[in-house]
């Protein structure tokens, strides 16, 4: 962008000005790079430190001599974390916790998408009594996060015998206003003519849903899947409340239980290896599906 807001008396002035501008632009570019690198450092360094920590033996970390280069204990630490767990009370193997987290995240994501698709389809493509009432009932659940209704929700779970079960972990989290809103928004953009063409072709509502609406929603489903997978994986308060059976422990909750009050004597090497396990799947999903994810996020929340 040229600095052209000054009257130029002659060619020499312009030459100097252009030179100065070019130098300023180069300087600005360098500053931008530095700012971004510092930003990235702040985000990457904690992970780096954790990765490094997970390759040293317990005493190195316990002493506090955290080196900045990898050690030789990676295999040992990760094997122990995977197969046996760690922490002072010999916790749950990461393999178990990761499986639980994976099942929970997948079920939550798939379940939310499934019931949101069908309910949005009903609201958009049909007219029936109480349609808008139902829509608003779903809509206002936006305002009721788990956190504000902890106690009575646990009571419901206890009454239904759903505590300490995978079903209990998943089902209550499946209802989703955001996903329903997203699909409703998208369905409204499907041209009326598709429905009309389908009617003339002889397709009924269920056929139209399967043959036309679902394929057209692919992108939205993929985007939402990424967000909901992470949502399910990262649940904290809910598993903490619902599950006491440690064989159902999810990795996020399990990890903080391993740390406890943060004693120096913890098996920090195993804890750090577990932290890496806990981080890896959702981060991988975000990085590999970045395009879907960004689109999904910015569209869901608007």
């Amino acid at each position: 962008m040229a600095a052209s807001d000054r009257p130029h008396e002659n060619a020499v002035d312009i030459g100097i000005l252009a030179d100065r501008t070019r130098r300023r632009q180069r300087r600005e570019k360098i500053v931008t790079h530095i700012c971004l690198l510092v930003g990235i450092l702040i985000f990457v360094f904690p992970i780096y430190l954790t990765l490094i920590g997970s390759t040293h033996d317990v005493n190195t970390i316990g002493r506090g001599d955290v080196p900045l280069l990898p050690g030789a204990e990676a295999l040992h630490n990760y094997t122990q974390a995977w197969a046996a767990g760690g922490g002072r009370y010999m916790g749950v193997p990461a393999a178990t916790m990761l499986t639980n987290s994976l099942i929970m995240a997948l079920c939550v994501a798939v379940g939310k998408i499934a019931i949101s698709l069908t309910s949005a389809y009903a609201v958009v493509f049909f007219r029936f009594p109480l349609r808008m009432v139902f829509f608003w009932l779903i809509f206002i659940t936006l305002m009721l996060p788990v956190e504000v209704r902890i106690i009575p929700t646990i009571q419901v779970m206890v009454d239904m015998g759903l505590t300490n079960s995978m079903a209990g972990l998943v089902i209550p989290l499946i209802a989703s206003a955001t996903a329903t809103l997203l699909f409703r928004q998208f369905f409204l953009t499907i041209p009326d003519e598709y429905v009309e063409a389908a009617k003339i072709d002889g397709a009924g509502p269920i056929r139209f849903f399967i043959d036309v609406v679902l394929p057209l929603s692919r992108t939205n489903i993929a985007a939402l899947f990424v967000i909901l997978f992470i949502y399910g994986w990262n649940q904290y308060l809910w598993p903490l409340l619902i599950v006491s059976d440690r064989s159902l422990e999810t990795v996020v909750v399990g990890l903080t239980k391993m740390i406890g009050t943060g004693d120096q004597q913890n098996e920090w090497n195993v804890i750090m290896a577990t932290a890496v396990f806990a981080l890896l799947p959702p981060v991988a999903v975000v990085v590999f599906m970045q395009r879907w994810f960004v689109k999904g996020l910015t569209e869901t929340e608007k």
Binding site: P191, E193, A197, K199, D211, V212, R218
Partner: peptide
Amino acid sequence: PADRDVAMVFQNYALYPH
């Protein structure tokens, strides 16, 4: 519409994009 044995050509064609 399906039972009337008619076919229709729409202004924006309404071709299923997928």
